[in-house]
Design a protein around this nucleic acid. Sequence first.
DNA 1: TACATAATTGAAAGCGCTTTGGATGCCACT
DNA 2: AGTGGCATCCAAAGCGCTTTCAATTATGTA
Lengths: 341, 341
Amino acid sequence: MNLKQLSELLGLSQTTVSRALNGYPEVNEATRERVLQAVKETGYRPNKAAQRLATGKAGSIGLVMPTAPGHQSDVHFGEFLAGLGEEAVRHDFHFVIMPADPDDEVAALRRLAISGNVDALFVAYMRGHDPRLAMLKSLSMPYVVHGRSFGSEPDYPYLDIDNEGAFYDATRLLLQLGHTRFALMNGPMHLDFAIRRKNGVISALAERGLALGEGCMSHALMTDEQGLLAMEHFLQLPERPTAILCSSTVLALGAIRAVNQAGLRLGEDISLIAHDDVLPLLKPESFSVPLTTTRSSLRAAGVRIAQRLIGTVKQAGPFPDQELWKTELIVRASTGPVPQA
Amino acid sequence: MNLKQLSELLGLSQTTVSRALNGYPEVNEATRERVLQAVKETGYRPNKAAQRLATGKAGSIGLVMPTAPGHQSDVHFGEFLAGLGEEAVRHDFHFVIMPADPDDEVAALRRLAISGNVDALFVAYMRGHDPRLAMLKSLSMPYVVHGRSFGSEPDYPYLDIDNEGAFYDATRLLLQLGHTRFALMNGPMHLDFAIRRKNGVISALAERGLALGEGCMSHALMTDEQGLLAMEHFLQLPERPTAILCSSTVLALGAIRAVNQAGLRLGEDISLIAHDDVLPLLKPESFSVPLTTTRSSLRAAGVRIAQRLIGTVKQAGPFPDQELWKTELIVRASTGPVPQA
DNA sequence: TACATAATTGAAAGCGCTTTGGATGCCACT
DNA sequence: AGTGGCATCCAAAGCGCTTTCAATTATGTA
């Protein structure tokens, strides 16, 4: 069933039917009723490809998903997607996901943009000096970046959380508790958030004349296994750190296992603060020793970015171009005063 | 830059250029070279919407993602998607994800199909007597179901793992170790896999004249928090179970925390077998007590389903319509002989 | 009653691509 | 020279929708 058939059925022109469907004012209310009724009865749905071709709008936002054999999927991706979806469903938008080899993201993004399948782009996993920014700017298609790109001019639309501030605050809390030997368990080194979190820690320490010790910084994928390994490493250090900053509750999971296995007590022998993306599968408050965290909902960020993206496509008023969300520092039981030597 | 402009630039007809690009044989090799060269220089990309309209093929597979405010995202979804993506990227396919309220999945699936945005559908989160099957059959669009629908005639294309067999085998192992008091920590009750796993457990027990005790079965979202709660409940039972079957390593995470908090030892006081979807963030072998598991890679299933879907769209030979994958039972340290009373 | 104005409706021209159904020219072959 | 076959190429017809421009009818005004 297509427009032509439907309009013949109704004895109307395609024009009028199309207008009735799209809410144009110049069509008689009675006719509109009739059309709507017929749509219900026939189950007619406009062909999106044709609509897309005619209007240039697709009602979709595009994103690339890094993937490859052996490339580990990322919990955070799914959670973020849920946020985007939550908003998209309200506007009858959908996503076009372009899977791409992690080495090929720039090209994949360009392909996606040019494909004509999407109205706007969402970009994540930002890196320092990210090469995608230049490409995006040249594209004349709306986009929003999740995160920022350290080292690039901040003249692009983004939504980020204050990673540096979060880890600065977390570090200060631990300093106030008397800790002096710190370690940072971070995400992959090239990612923007990792860079900023590191800076937050370093600058808080520097204010007290301290620094991260030798071997007290790890960069790894954020899985529990990597958390375990990193923590085991920290615990073997001659000057064992007493305060751990951790980029994810997933990492913390493994880290805490290592602490337990070493016979140490979390919150007493070792203090730990993790960043909490509010993943539904892992609640810091239900850890056996509830975790002190810096918190910011990944999902909420997804919702917000979808709002901005969809709003821009629909020309629904101006949105702030750049948003930096503060994180909350929530103190629970995994942090305590430095143990007496 | 569109086809018309490109062809004018080359002094050829759109027909010839189109053919050159799509590998038709009736175009002179020299001309084809020339065209390809021009494409490189101009950066021309065919408009997908137009291609879609003309051919009826979109190079995409569609899926609906259940989402709503308050609806928890699911780790397994992301992992599965990674598998789909891994295969899709090889064929230059992409996904169209339709977010939908969980109550609205049938309609969302239909919208997606009719939208003309996709060539094939992938369907997951199957339920008993799933209403989507009838709709899919009426659709004349290729699809593959991940899982099955208990209670429906198995006359649809699917890929499933042998959930019943897995939990049957796991239960038998525990029976052989002398356990008699069992509990099952399952996923949401309406989901097909949960039904079959339950059946596997029940039938293995029945062979020994045993059954699940009162209150020894939980159905919940597969998060660590729910695992914790369920296990706490089990441990308070007057006839405390000694053998736990668990539908996910994520649930196991919380469950084990409860075991530890109760001062019990995993693999001694309590034996536990979990189903392992091979999530990269949670490796059963790196639990402090490595987990005995039934294993089947969710990601591999994603890859396979993508193969079938894309193969069908590309008409690349026949695929088996129904696949049932065996799981592996991998014995590690979380299972041991029943403790002496 | 005559004419301007508003309210409805349609015809037809695209959107950018694929593909059908010829053309055209060149060659071998009889 | 005449014919058929082959290799190339092209014009034009869609695919299903939106939208411009124009036509028609209904309404209101002088």
